[in-house]
Each structure stands twice: as structure tokens, then as C-alpha cells.
Computed example of a mutant assay.
Amino acid sequence: MLMNHTNLTEDDLFSCYSPSVIGYRYFAVLCGCAVTVIGTVGNLMTILAFTINSQLRTRFNVLIVNLALADLLYCTILQWRSGQLWCKIFGLLLLLSNSVSIITLCLIAGSRYVMVAKRAVFDRVFSDLGLSLLIISAWTLGLASFGPLWHGYVFVPKLCVCTMTRTTYHPYSIILLLFYFFVGLGCVGTFYFLIYRHIRISSQALLRFSRRSSRKKPASSAQNTNDSGVESSVANTCSCEISSQAELAKNTVEINSEKSSQCTHSSATAESTTKTPLEIVITSSSRTPARINAASSSHCTASGDDKEMKHVTRMCLAVFLGFVFCFVPFLLINIADEHNRAPQVLYMIFRNLSWLNSCINPVLYAVMNRQFRQAYHVLHCQLFLCLSGSV
């Protein structure tokens, strides 16, 4: 009888049953299962795509993989609930994955800004060794932050999750909350604002220089320049002008071939490009055919790299906004509802919304990044062939 009573007490201890959420709890279970499956598969595919696709193995994508690892950890532990020991492990790993995600988002935004504004600093800080140290430091900082709360992780029925409560190490937990969610996410937003500002200033400077160059050219010279495709390249159009330039100046075939081949490079090329578009245009002031063709080709390369960098930056911004959209409602209700007066179903809805963050990133990569989309397609085909062969 004593054992049965003990077992019953243990079950009750980890139950989030409430008459107000009888209907919603079935949806919550389905949502949790879907997030676990989709998030696990999607993040594994992201890691495999990085492993097998050489074009994706860039320094920047190392941070994307680290974010996928944090999301994968979140997905795999999502359904843990019962047992005191498992509850503490779950609470620690849950907050660890969230903290590593925030730190990685900061590193992603910071790396994009440093790449745009201070290329030399990027090469030093985000080298292979530097990236390894940064990733290790992110996991170490997360573990060191939430490890001291080990004895404070308990099951909270209203949240239906194992985590720290308001009364657990209250000052320390508040400091962590402010540091990670407000300071951390605030830094990410600041970096993206600085990136936008820098790109806008560079684009405006390039446009002003192009207009001044057009006004200074005589009419006849402008006509000849237009026939050779130089004016089109200065106007930032990189279509089929290079071929006509090669016919005009055969002495520079090797230069044009080497430069024009860079127009098809991906984000990995963007990391190795050290000149801004404005610098390339300024250095192409010579009027000899060979130098004009080389400068035109270089400008074409810079324009293509700039577009690729903008695409990648937009993808990173979407990942950050997705994180904010998923976590901020749950964070705000925990702050605003100090006296626990909000209905439990509202807590559970916001909690389920926070789950989505661990599975939406692979979707964003597939939608907004051509290389990830192609890598996912290859993995799907290989998996289909393996399943067909086994059948």
C-alpha cells in the first residue's frame, strides 16, 4: 500500500492535468511530437548537408551548424517529464540549449557585421581556431550559467515543464534572464541595424560615384563605352557584358577569365573578398582597354558577392526574428503574470509556440538559401534511393 501511494504521489508530482486544459492538452501532445520529429530530422539534415557539401563548409556556416546542434538537443529532450533526476537533467539541458542558441545568434550577427565593416578583424577573430574557441566558449558559458541552478530545477505544473521557478535563486535567475534575453538579443538587433546602416551608406556612395562618372564622360566616349559594356558594368549590371569585353581586348583574356569566373561563387567567395564595391570602382579609373575590362570584371564579382552577402544576411535576420517571435510571448507572460493569475491554457499556448523555434530554422535555410536547398534535395534523393534499394 505504501509503494502504491508513493507511485501515485510520483505520478501526481509530474502531472500538468487541469480541467481548464483538458481539450488543449491533446493538441499540445501532437504539437510536441511534430516538433520533435520535424526538428530532429531538419537539424540532422542541416548538419549532414554541411558535412557532405564542400560549398557549405565555410567559416560562417560553422555557426549555423552549432545553432542546429543546440536546436537538436532541444528537440531530443522535449518529451522528457517524469522522475526527479530526469527533471533536473531536462531543466538544465533546456536552458543550456536556449542560452547556446542566443549566444550563437550573437556570434552570427557579429560575424556578419565584422565581415562587412572590418574584414581584417574578421579573418583574425573568425579563423578556424577562433571559431573553435568561440563555440567551445558558448557551451561552456551556458553550462557555467545554469549549472549552479541544479538543485532548483523542479516540475512546474502550470508551465508543464521542468525549469527553475520564481523563488529559485531569485536574484541570480533574474540576472541570467536579463543577460541572455534582453542584453543578448539586444546585441543581435544592434548588429543587424549596423549591418543595414553600413550597406546603405556603401550603396549610396557607389551610386553617387557612378552618377559623377556618367556626367564627366563626353557623349561620344559614353557611346563607345556603352557599346563595349563598360558603362553597364559600372551601373552594377553583371550580365553578358564580359564576353563582348573579351572580344574587344583579346590581350586581357586571362584576366577576364579569372575575374569573371568569380561571378558564380557562393557565400564562401564572399568571405574571401577583401574589397568593397566602392574600392573596386575607384581603382578602375584608368581608360586603357585592358584595365577597363579588368575593373569591369572585378566590379561584376563584387556586385555578385554583395548580393550573396545580402541574401545570407537576410536569412540570418529571419532566423533571429523567428527566435524572438517564438520566445518573447512566453517570456513576457512569465514577467507580467507575477501573481500567477493568467489562465493555464495561455501559458501552454505560449510554451508550445516556443517549441517551434527548434524546427523552423531548417525551413528558413531551405527557403532563403539556394545552397542549403540543393543540399537538402540531394539528401532527400539519396535517402529515397536507399529506401528503394532496401525494398
Rank of each mutant, 00 (worst) to 15 (best):
V312N: 04
E308L: 11
T40Y: 03
Q262F: 13
I174K: 07
A375L: 12
I333E: 04
L176Q: 08
L346Q: 01
R208I: 06
W80H: 05
L8Q: 13
K250N: 09
L78N: 01
K216H: 12
M45D: 04
R59W: 09
T283P: 07
S99F: 06
I22P: 09
F60D: 00
F372N: 01
I52K: 07
S213F: 03
V100A: 10
L177D: 10
S210I: 11
R197V: 04
T190G: 10
E338F: 14
G39I: 03
L8P: 00
L149D: 06
E279C: 08
S228N: 14
D227P: 02
A205Y: 08
G130H: 05
F325D: 06
M348D: 00
M115C: 00
S145A: 06
M3S: 14
T104C: 05
A49E: 04
I335L: 12
N98H: 06
E254R: 13
T269M: 06
L143D: 00
A109P: 02
E10R: 01
L317Y: 12
A117D: 12
N53P: 01
G142Q: 03
L194G: 05
S111M: 12
L94T: 11
D128L: 05
G110E: 09
L129M: 07
S303M: 11
I255E: 08
V41R: 02
I242D: 10
L63T: 02
C263W: 12
L30E: 10
V183P: 07
F146Q: 00
L387W: 11
S82I: 04
K275S: 15
L194F: 11
A366Q: 09
T104Q: 10
E241G: 02
V161A: 02
Y365I: 12
I242K: 06
T252H: 08
G304F: 10
F327P: 02
L133Y: 12
I135H: 10
V378N: 13
N251W: 14
S203R: 11
V183N: 05
I255G: 10
M368A: 02
H265P: 02
L278M: 07
L129W: 07
A318S: 07
S145K: 03
N251G: 15
